[in-house]
Design a protein around this nucleic acid. Structure first.
Lengths: 182, 182
DNA sequence: TCTTGCGTTCGAGCGCGCTCGAAGGCATAG
DNA sequence: CTATGCCTTCGAGCGCGCTCGAACGCAAGA
């Protein structure tokens, strides 16, 4: 089935370890059957953010929320879907400013679609850059862990350049020399 | 040669687009031949951070720097190597607090190596989590771009759950309905 | 009736990581 | 001699994204 393919792909992207990915997928699946309306506590729970933050987003103009007879917020499915989008964008590092801009475009109507696309494409590139940065850092940290542990491969001198480790030090030397001041 | 393997791996990890990875590799290669001492401006330039930030790191106790006859900072190779490490960790999201803790362990001597390893391993896991998060966000943004553009595949309904797009909307519908309020 | 619990508004405060400005020292160029 | 340019210290300020506290309202349960 097509949905299974999708989930498989998403899970692969997430990696196969830990409860985080399971949670994430669960959240995604939940989007399929949202209740008609939700309270602030329910939405906060769904998105794993605080009610304070939800009110903050509303104040910031990112979403409009109706009130019931008691003045309590009533989130309809549209608001919740928008908040899912917003929190995902926040989680991926998009600044509030850009989000406010994007939402203003959405509210301005269909003729802003090209500009919205520009925003999304730029953010996509930002995410890709960030992933590449993190991947390099990950390589460095992993190498550093490996040398600290003593299970060193044959490329130590070269990899030293990546980790910031003194590359003149050999793996057999004591740690205090192989990892100067780090 | 071993170094070539390393660079190949690092470049693969970074991806093959843009000047960022080239810069990064260049920085890494430069570590091999550091000058004996450097000025604050030179170090700032090397690490692509401001002199202000370098002074801030020193104030924060992350690195000790000697002074010349004029009271100007003189960074020796050890200090620079430590700063390379520190900026890499900062770039990968390690908080100043943790960095201060780590450096205090380093300065406390070789018997803190196990605890240092704990810090590194934990940070490694944090980076991995972050990469997974970003990868999922990237998938979502890419899908959203694809549907905005109209070049929609067969899995739209399912993928809608990931992007936060109204999954009941069909790809052939007008955009204002296919992408409600987003 | 009174407590508990969840909600409201408003504005202030906070933690982080810089970033900057002021006031001054020293050295080289014109 | 003076202007420039880069450096110093110190403390304050800032931008971001929340986060919290105060003071209050409403409603269900003991």
């Amino acid at each position: 089935m097509a949905t299974d393919d999708l989930m498989t792909r998403a899970l692969e992207a997430l990696g196969d370890d830990g409860p985080l990915s399971v949670e994430a997928i669960h959240r995604l699946a939940d989007l399929a059957d949202l209740p008609e309306t939700m309270t602030i506590a329910e939405v906060a729970d769904l998105l794993d953010i605080s009610p304070h933050t939800l009110r903050y987003y509303e104040r910031a103009g990112l979403v409009e929320v109706a009130r019931d007879g008691n003045g309590h917020r009533v989130y309809d499915a549209g608001a919740v879907r928008r908040l899912v989008f917003l929190t995902r964008m926040r989680l991926s590092g998009m600044p509030m400013r850009d989000l406010q801009h994007y939402i203003s475009l959405v509210d301005a109507g269909g003729r802003t679609v090209p500009e919205r696309l520009d925003v999304l494409v730029e953010h996509r590139d930002t995410i890709r850059r960030r992933i590449r940065e993190l991947t390099l850092s990950l390589t460095a940290v992993e190498y550093k862990i490996a040398t600290y542990g003593g299970s060193t491969g044959p490329d130590v001198q070269a990899l030293g350049a990546i980790t910031g480790t003194d590359r003149t030090a050999l793996p057999d030397e004591p740690l205090r020399r192989a990892l100067p001041a780090e």
